[in-house]
Structures are given as C-alpha cells and as structure tokens.
Write a protein that binds this DNA or RNA. Structure first.
Lengths: 152, 152
DNA sequence: CATCAACCAAAAGCTTACTTTAGGTTTAAT
DNA sequence: ATTAAACCTAAAGTAAGCTTTTGGTTGATG
C-alpha cells in the first residue's frame, strides 16, 4: 500500500515530524498537493517530503507561509521539481538569508556598542532605527560608525 | 509640560515610531511603566525610550515579548537602569544572538548544499532535521559534513 | 470658555500558523 | 465480519502581538 509514490497523510506526518492537521493546512494554502484514493483519502508523492522540509527550513529563517508559497510558485507545475529547480529557489533565498545574517550581525554589534551608551540623539542612534542605518550600506561596520558619531 | 522626565504617551509614540496602542499594550505586559498625572493620563520617564528601542531591537532578532519581559526582569526595579545594567543584559543576549547567527549560517549552507540534492535518507538529512544536526556542535561545518554523508 | 486634539478603559477584532472538536467514513487487522 | 485506527470536512479555538472600536474625559489653544 505505502509504496514510495503513494504516501498517506499519517505516513508523511510521521516522517516529517509535523501534525496531520498541519498537512491539511499546508494543502489549503497551496504549499503541497495530493490526490485522492477511492475512499477520498489523501495520497502524496515522495517529493512532498522535500517540500515540507523546505517549508520548515524556510520558516526557521523567518519566512512566512505566504512568502514560501510565492517562492514555490517558481517551481514547475507539471513535473516534479528536480535538483536544478530547487537549487534555483535556494539561490534566491541565499541572498535574503545572507542579508538577514548581516542584519543580525550588525544588530548584534550595535546592541553591544549602543545598548548601554548615553546617547540621547534618538534620530541618529542605530538602536533606535536600525532599518535606516542598514538600508543603504548593509554592513555591520556602518552601524558601529553611526553609533560612534553619537558619542562625539 | 513636556519636560524631559515627563513624556506623554503620544510624545513617546511619535519619538519611537510605535502606536499609542502598542504602548498601552507594552505597559499591560509589564515591559514599560508610567505614572499618572492629575487627569489620569500616562507620563513617562525618558528612559522609556531606550526600553522601547531595546524591545524593538530584540523583537527584530526573534525574541518574543515574554522573553523580553524576562530579560527586563534582571534590570533594577528601584532605580533607572544605568549603562552597566543595560550592558549586562546585552551580554546575555549576545550569546543567544551569536548562536542564532551561526544557526542561520549553517542553515544557509545546508540549504545550498542539500536543497537540490538527491538524498533520500531523511533521518540523516540536515534539511530535514536541522535542530538535531545543530544541537551539539553548533557550527556550520557540521551540517555540511552531515550533508556530505548523505551522498556517500 | 469653547473647542478640538489627545487621552482613558474595556472589549472586540485582526493576522499568522496552526490545533482541536465534532460527527461521520474508510481501511487494516483479526 | 467486526473493530480499532486512520482518515474525512467544517468550524471553532488558540497564542502572539497588536489595532480598532466605543463611549467618555482631559488638556492646550485662540
């Protein structure tokens, strides 16, 4: 019954460590697909496992389900996504991920340099508006520099 | 009226770029404090500005309000937190932050190396259970190594 | 001193990402 | 053939983090 291209919802849930209800939910959202057997029960292809793994990884780095839906929209509809399809998606996410990492690093440094500082010029303080500080330059050093300015 | 130690809620909201309703909410949650004037309106000390900046920065790196409440619980109650108090809090957060950065980097590398791979051994795939993979070692290289194993 | 902006409290509403509940059907095992 | 586990749908519930609404009070300004 449970051959490799014919997974039941409970089976997928167990393999992926998610609840059956979550799979129903993902399907509603268009993140995964299934077909139905004679008795109206969901059946999945094996590639659903990778999709779910990717969903969970993406969530972990802060993407919303809607953003993931949009990313998945770039995958082919008619065939099972292959290595290259996934790699393309990965590449697009890499950039965002690298930005986020830089952002966190900048924030981390800024936190360290500024959290206890006496600067009262809120408009310039990177802690008070880290987005502005990061918007253009995108590097941690900038924040530190801006913070330094406040001590002038 | 709006002297430096006597800020109104609207004033604080404008300076911090948050809604008045958010300030009410933060107060309810115990994140900030105020006293009331004759007419029952909130008044804030200037240090509320830093508190709010810290709240927003912390949220940005993924802390929940409850976690922030807990961190704030380490600040002195009876006096306005000084440089050292904030620095202590910052130090505690630095570690978490560095961990998160490492985690994101690992995930980023793992995503790149694994997302399009053909590995079907889900139990070992770092994409499928990045927590396990990161749990002990905490370094990006580990994930990559684990991913490599799957290609064996 | 009138008026309008700012403020107040309490409760309901919203979004995200699910879970739980309720009542009924299918499947697998004995 | 029976029965328990697994499955189905639809709707309601949950938690976080706020916003909006309602209806009334206070405060700054001309």
């Amino acid at each position: 019954m449970h051959d490799e291209a014919n997974l039941s919802v409970g089976n997928v849930a167990k393999r992926c460590g998610v609840a059956v209800s979550a799979l129903h939910f993902y399907e509603q959202k268009g993140l995964i697909r299934s077909w139905r057997n004679q008795g109206n029960q969901r059946r999945y292809k094996r590639d659903v496992l990778r999709r779910i793994a990717v969903i969970k990884a993406a969530q972990k780095v802060g993407l919303t389900l809607d953003e993931i839906v949009q990313a998945f929209a770039t995958l082919p509809e008619k065939r099972t996504p292959d290595k290259q399809d996934w790699a393309n998606l990965s590449n697009r996410w890499q950039k965002m991920l690298q930005q986020r990492i830089r952002y966190m690093q900048a924030l981390s440094e800024s936190l360290d340099g500024c959290i206890g500082c006496g600067c009262l010029s809120l408009k310039n303080c990177p802690l008070y508006n880290p987005d502005d500080a990061l918007a253009e330059q995108g590097s941690g050093a900038v924040l530190i520099d801006k913070a330094a300015e406040n001590y002038k």
